[in-house]
Amino acid sequence: MTTMAVLTIFLLAIFVGFEVVSKVSTTLHTPLMSGANAIHGIILVGAIIVADNATSGLETTLSIVAVVLATINMVGGFVVTDRMLEMFKGKPKTPKASKEVAK
């Protein structure tokens, strides 16, 4: 990958990141933070790549620890976000709809 390509991807991703969350309501700040937190658990992929290439004992140990930590971040993050959002079910802005969905 050329440096120019990396820079392009990086800059475009910044704008997408700004754009997608710019209109979030206060109610969703916590779940959104938690969801974003789970997404950076994708470092698990990086941890697997380095563990897969590791040959020395030190490299293997460090990368396996990284795999454990990254898994906790990713899996735990998505599960806790889902638990938070579970409580929002049937809670759209219109009160009528909420009654219907909430049985």
């Binding site: 997408v16 700004f18 959104l32 974003a36 997404i39 950076h40």
Partner: peptide, 10 residues
Amino acid sequence: TLVGASGTIL
């Protein structure tokens, strides 16, 4: 980068 950018806005 997505998390970095959206996290900053948040």
